[in-house]
């Protein structure tokens, strides 16, 4: 359902030490942030691409699709950074006359935009390496080792578990609505979406009630014990 999560559990680098994977990715994200050298960026992008697609075996098609996810944000922002306005056309490399002022591209703007683009891509590729090769239970285990407070990790783990339950539910409700023409125009789309959110919410509250009973039956002592012992963590 969540494709990144799926690949994290099925990729070829799954059983590599998570501290290595996470350490490497975070190091490269940090290096990308402080770096200004274009070739270094290109190196990270190529290296990350190679490691994710060839070593971890993530299908190229899926990978490229994922890379495109933040592009709406990236491209809109690039335009904003690239284009400047001024009453003086001399500051621009290239400009057009907009009657009251000029709009154009400056050398610094161009350089900044290009660097920013490469830096974002480098960080993105590094982040993807982390998320696509490191299953969530390994990530949580590593956070535990880093002494992140256990209450935080408990809630974090619970949210992770429940995301999949609610995702499936919302998808089913959506499909049932769609098949009964719930999304054929704007007006009923709003109505259907509201119904979906309401239905989901009501079910979440019911689930809370039911699950508290289960907690009682399981002698809940106030703590959700995560990743304490064997099982799942052997290769972590």
């Amino acid at each position: 359902m969540l494709i990144i999560d799926k690949f994290a559990y099925t990729n070829k680098l799954k059983s590599i030490n998570p501290r290595l994977k996470i350490g490497l990715s975070l190091t490269f994200i940090a290096l990308a942030l402080i770096n200004k050298n274009m070739y270094f960026f290109i190196g990270i992008i190529c290296g990350g691409f190679y490691a994710t697609v060839f070593l971890a075996g993530i299908p190229l098609k899926n990978y490229m699709k994922m890379i495109l996810i933040p592009f709406a944000f990236l491209l809109t922002s690039m335009i904003a950074i690239l284009v400047s306005f001024s009453s003086d056309s001399d500051v621009f490399l290239y400009s057009i006359d907009l009657k009251f002022f000029y709009g154009g591209v400056t050398l610094i703007g161009l350089k900044n935009a290009l660097l920013l683009f490469l830096r974002s891509m480098s960080s993105l590729v590094s982040l993807y390496f982390l998320t696509l090769t490191t299953p969530m239970d390994q990530q949580i285990y590593t956070m535990q080792k880093l002494r992140i407070p256990s209450l935080f990790l408990e809630i974090y783990s619970l949210i992770y578990r429940f995301i999949f339950i609610l995702l499936e539910e919302s998808l089913e409700i959506y499909r049932a609505q769609e098949l009964r023409f719930g999304y054929i125009n704007m007006k009923n789309s709003y109505l259907s979406l509201s119904i979906l959110i309401k239905t989901l919410f009501v079910r979440v509250m019911r689930r809370y009630k039911d699950m508290q009973i289960v907690l009682d039956m399981k002698l809940f002592d106030g703590e959700f014990h995560i990743g304490k012992g064997a099982g799942g963590q052997e290769n972590a």
């Binding site: 049932a176 009964r180 023409f181 719930g182 239905t199």
Partner: peptide, 18 residues
């Protein structure tokens, strides 16, 4: 997961109204 209204009639009518 496929009943959306608290009123039976409205629920059955959902598709037709759409």
């Amino acid at each position: 997961r496929q009943i959306f209204f608290s009123n039976v009639y409205d629920d059955i009518a959902f598709g037709l109204r759409n």
